[in-house]
Design a protein around this nucleic acid. Structure first.
Length: 523
RNA sequence: GCGCCUCUAGCUCAAUUGGCAGAGCAUCGGACUCUUAAUCCGCAGGUUCCGGGUUCAAGUCCCGGGGGGCGUACCA
C-alpha cells in the first residue's frame, strides 16, 4: 500500500472530515523543498478523496511571520523591516529595493509559487495567517494561551528542555515601528496586551486584530485547533525530539483542540549538494524545475519515495531513469495471477504512486505519456530543430496518430529547455563531429572503410530524406559485405565520435549533405 | 550533548508493519539483414552491517555495538 493511502486509512480511523495542511513561511523564493512539502500533504489529501473520505487541503501561508534578517537578495534598506510581519512589508523590486507599488512581500513570493502549484495540479485553499489574526479567529486562542501561560511555559521548558526567560509571554505585540523585536509586555486586560517597545513608546495591542502574534510553537498548536487540522506533515526540522511538533501536541490539547498525529518527512536534496538552503545558494526554484521536468514526473519523484527517506533531486541522467520507471508501469501486466504476495504488494504500491502522480486526479497515467518515451523525445528534440519535424517523425514512426496533444507539446517544450540548459547530461547530448579524431579513425577497419567509401557515392545521388538515406546505408553495407550492425557502428564513430546513437538516418537527413559527405570521405 | 533517519544483489531501492528475500538499472550470454542511447529472451549475482534475545517463524520486534546521512540548543 502506498504511504499516502496508508495515512488515509489511519485518518479514516480517526474519523470525521479531514483537513490536511501545509504551512510555509514566504521569506523568500520558494524552492523544490517547499514543493515536496506541498506534494506530500496533497497526496494524502487525494488518497483520502480516493478512498471516499471527505477532505480539504489547506495551504497556510505564514504571512504574519517577521522578516528575520536582510537576505542576500535584499538591499540594506530592508534593515528597518526586520521583525515586521511579511504581510506588512513591501515586496522587493528587481534591485532588491522595497517597492511601495509592488504589493506585500508575502504576496510577492507566494504568487509565482501558486502558479507553479497549479501546473502540477495542486490547487489548495490558501489561508493567509495574518488574516486569521486580523479577523479575530485567533483571539480566543490568544486569550486562552495568556490565561494558561504558566502551563504552556512548563510544557515548553519540560519537553524542549530549554529555559524560557522569566518575562516570557505567549504573545508578541507589534511595537510602534510595526516590528515584533524588542517589545516587552507590560500587562494584559482582555482584549488588550499592553507593551513598551525599545524606543520607550508604549501602547496596547488588540488580540482580535493583527497587532501581534503568538510565538511559533503556540501559533502552530493554536491553528490546529482553529482550522481543525487532522494531518500536517512537517519537515524534520520540526520533528526533532522536543521540537515544535512535540510541544505543539500538548499545547493544542490545552487550548481545547485535537492535534494531528506527528508526521515528519525527510528533506529533499539536490544531487550531491546537501540540503536545500537559500542562504547557501543550494536551491532550485519550482518554476525552474517545472520548466525542465514534466509535471507528472515531478510528482512521481515525490510519490515514489517513502516520506522518511531523503530524496536526491537530480535533473541530470537520473531523470531518464525516473521517466523510464514511470513509463514502464503504464502497461498493466496481464499475468497478475502468478506473482507472489510480496510482488503484488510492491506492484500495488507502485500503482498507487502512479495514481497520485497524475496532474489531474483520476486521469489515466497513459495519457500523460502520450505514446512517446522520454528518451525518444530527448533524441528527436535534439535532431529536429523545429517542432513540426518532431511531430512528423512521430507520426511516421507510428508513435502518434494525428496531431500531438497538449501534454505532448508541453513535454517537448520542457525537453527543449532541459537540453539547452546546464542540467542536461553530456552523455545524452548528441554532438556532431567536425572532423574525425585520429584515435576514432584507428577503430575503423578496412571493410568498414570500403563501406564508407561506397556510402559517399550513394549519398551524393540519393534523395535527401530519411528513408532514402536508410535504404542507401543498407545497400552499401550489403555491397561491401559488412553486417548492418557494424555499418551503423562505423557511421556513429564517424559522425558522433562514439559507437552508439540515435537512429542515424534521421540524424543524417537533418545534416547538410556536402558537410556530411566531407566528413565521411575524410576517413 | 539530545534526537531522528538509514544500512538488503555491483548501483538505486522493494518486501502487505512477523509468513517462500525481488524489481529496475548495470554486467555477462543469446536473438533480431534493425523505427540502433531500441526491443525480446536468458544467465549470474545474498551471512538483509555485526552480536545477542523473543518466536513455530525475524530484513521486519527487543537489547547491545558499528558505519553513513541529517536535525536541533531563546528563532518556521
Amino acid at each position: 500500500m502506498h504511504w499516502a493511502d496508508y495515512t488515509a486509512k489511519k485518518l479514516a480511523e480517526r474519523g470525521g472530515p479531514q483537513v490536511v495542511v501545509s504551512g510555509i513561511t514566504p521569506s523568500g523564493e520558494f524552492h523544490i523543498g517547499h514543493l515536496s512539502e506541498i506534494l506530500t500533504a496533497e497526496m494524502i489529501h487525494r488518497a483520502c478523496l480516493d478512498s471516499g473520505i471527505q477532505s480539504r487541503y489547506v495551504f497556510i501561508v505564514d504571512s504574519m511571520d517577521p522578516l528575520r534578517r536582510v537576505y542576500d537578495f535584499l538591499s540594506p534598506s530592508y534593515e528597518s523591516y526586520i521583525g515586521v510581519p511579511l504581510a506588512n512589508i513591501p515586496a522587493p523590486d528587481e534591485n532588491g529595493e522595497p517597492d511601495k507599488e509592488g504589493g506585500s512581500y508575502a504576496e510577492f513570493f507566494l504568487r509565482p509559487f501558486l502558479d507553479a502549484l497549479k501546473q502540477i495540479g495542486v490547487e489548495p485553499e490558501v489561508v493567509m495567517n495574518h488574516l486569521t489574526y486580523s479577523n479575530g479567529e485567533f483571539a480566543e486562542m490568544i486569550d486562552s494561551a495568556i490565561v494558561n501561560r504558566e502551563k504552556i511555559h512548563e510544557i515548553i521548558e519540560s519537553i524542549s528542555g530549554r529555559d524560557l526567560p522569566e518575562d516570557w509571554f505567549p504573545y508578541n505585540p507589534l511595537g510602534s515601528s510595526g516590528s515584533l523585536d524588542g517589545v516587552k509586555v507590560t500587562g494584559y486586560e482582555k482584549p488588550f496586551v499592553h507593551w513598551v517597545d525599545s524606543t520607550g513608546a508604549t501602547g496596547k495591542s488588540d488580540i482580535r486584530l493583527a497587532e501581534g502574534k503568538m510565538p511559533w510553537r503556540i501559533d502552530w498548536a493554536a491553528r490546529w485547533a482553529i482550522h481543525g487540522v487532522t494531518c500536517e506533515p512537517a519537515g524534520k526540522d520540526h520533528g526533532a525530539a522536543g521540537g515544535s511538533y512535540d510541544t505543539g501536541i500538548p499545547i493544542c490539547e490545552l487550548l481545547g483542540g485535537k492535534p494531528p498525529e506527528k508526521m515528519v518527512y525527510e528533506w529533499i536534496q539536490l544531487k550531491g549538494m546537501g540540503p536545500m538552503s537559500s542562504s547557501t545558494g543550494v536551491t532550485i526554484g519550482p518554476m525552474e524545475a517545472l520548466s525542465l521536468v514534466p509535471p507528472e514526473i515531478l510528482r512521481y519523484v515525490i510519490a515514489r519515495s517513502k516520506i522518511n527517506r531523503h530524496i536526491e533531486f537530480d535533473t541530470g541522467t537520473a531523470l531518464f531513469e525516473v521517466a523510464d520507471e514511470y513509463e514502464r508501469f503504464q502497461m498493466p501486466s496481464e499475468e497478475v495471477g502468478d506473482i507472489s504476495k510480496r510482488q503484488r504488494i510492491a506492484r500495488d504500491t507502485q500503482l498507487g504512486a502512479m495514481r497520485l502522480s497524475q496532474v489531474e486526479r483520476g486521469s489515466d497515467p497513459a495519457d500523460s505519456i502520450a505514446g512517446v518515451s522520454f528518451r525518444h523525445l530527448s533524441m528527436l528534440a535534439q535532431i529536429k530543430s523545429d517542432d513540426e519535424g518532431v511531430w512528423t517523425s512521430l507520426q511516421r514512426s507510428g508513435h502518434i496518430s494525428g496531431e500531438p496533444g497538449v501534454s505532448l507539446r508541453g513535454r517537448l517544450e520542457r525537453m527543449r529547455n532541459w537540453i539547452e540548459g546546464e542540467h542536461f547530461p553530456e552523455a545524452a547530448r548528441i554532438t556532431i563531429q567536425n572532423e574525425v579524431d585520429s584515435s576514432i579513425a584507428s577503430e575503423i577497419d578496412e571493410v568498414s572503410r570500403s563501406f564508407l567509401g561506397l556510402l559517399t557515392q550513394g549519398l551524393g545521388t540519393c534523395n535527401w530524406n530519411e528513408d532514402s538515406i536508410s535504404e542507401t546505408i543498407r545497400e552499401c553495407a550489403a555491397n561491401s559485405g559488412l553486417g548492418n550492425r557494424k555499418a551503423y557502428i562505423a557511421l556513429y564513430l564517424v559522425i558522433l565520435g562514439r559507437d552508439y546513437g540515435p537512429r542515424i538516418s534521421s540524424l543524417m537527413s537533418e545534416m547538410d549533405r556536402e558537410f556530411l559527405i566531407g566528413i565521411i570521405s575524410s576517413i
